[in-house]
């Protein structure tokens, strides 16, 4: 079990391997889309790992990238359609970023590095853990951005009204896209300080 836990901290895909930042940070201004995005990536990552691992002995190496892209886009479209049907509010916020999961380097990276050479069950676990490790960073970033930027969590106000009366203001800067990057930088800093 322990060998699967690496992606959550020691080998975290975002913090250590700098993979998959692309499609992610733009959805971290609030908790709810961040959690949905994290779950979507986890599902896509886990199942495409599983499928590629099942097919691994039949895939001709020369066209493996195309095959991988096909399998990943299949799951992404599936997730996208389900979101539009079941979680309409969130799917509006995520818009094109769900589609961009396809080119999320974490997923392609795990398919190349793990699923092509491992058995199905470990691949499923590996995909899931990497997806979760990625999601963890998203959710932490979203937590701080929503709390400090809007004074809410999961759309519920958490900063007491008396604070605002006393002169507390939401930090509008936190909401802007570049702050997501700076927060990730700070997270890396914190993580490196703790682990080294």
């Amino acid at each position: 079990m322990k060998k699967y836990l690496g992606p959550l901290s020691k080998d975290n895909p975002i913090l250590v391997q700098t993979l998959g930042v692309c499609s992610a940070l733009a959805v971290t201004a609030q908790m709810k889309p961040a959690v949905v995005m994290a779950l979507s990536v986890t599902v896509v990552c886990a199942f495409s790992n599983l499928i590629i691992s099942l097919l691994r002995n039949t895939i001709p190496p020369r066209i493996r990238i195309i095959v991988q892209l096909l399998v990943v886009s299949f799951f992404v479209i599936l997730v996208d359609q389900l979101l539009q049907a079941m979680l309409y509010d969130v799917s509006k916020i995520l818009s094109v970023f769900v589609g961009l999961i396809i080119t999320n380097c974490i997923i392609m990276g795990r398919l190349e590095a793990f699923a092509l050479s491992h058995k199905p069950i470990p691949s499923l676990m590996d995909g899931m853990m990497n997806g979760l490790g990625y999601g963890l960073v998203l959710v932490v970033v979203a937590f701080f951005r929503e709390l400090l930027g809007s004074g809410t969590l999961w759309n519920h106000p958490v900063v007491p009204a008396s604070w605002y009366a006393a002169g507390y203001m939401n930090n509008g800067l936190m909401i802007l896209p570049p702050m997501a990057l700076i927060l990730v930088g700070v997270l890396i800093w914190a993580k490196n300080s703790l682990t080294s």
């Binding site: 609030q30 818009s95 509008g172 936190m174």
Partner: peptide, 8 residues
């Protein structure tokens, strides 16, 4: 709105 900045 489609994609205005949250909080602004």
């Amino acid at each position: 709105h489609k994609s205005e900045t949250p909080g602004l």
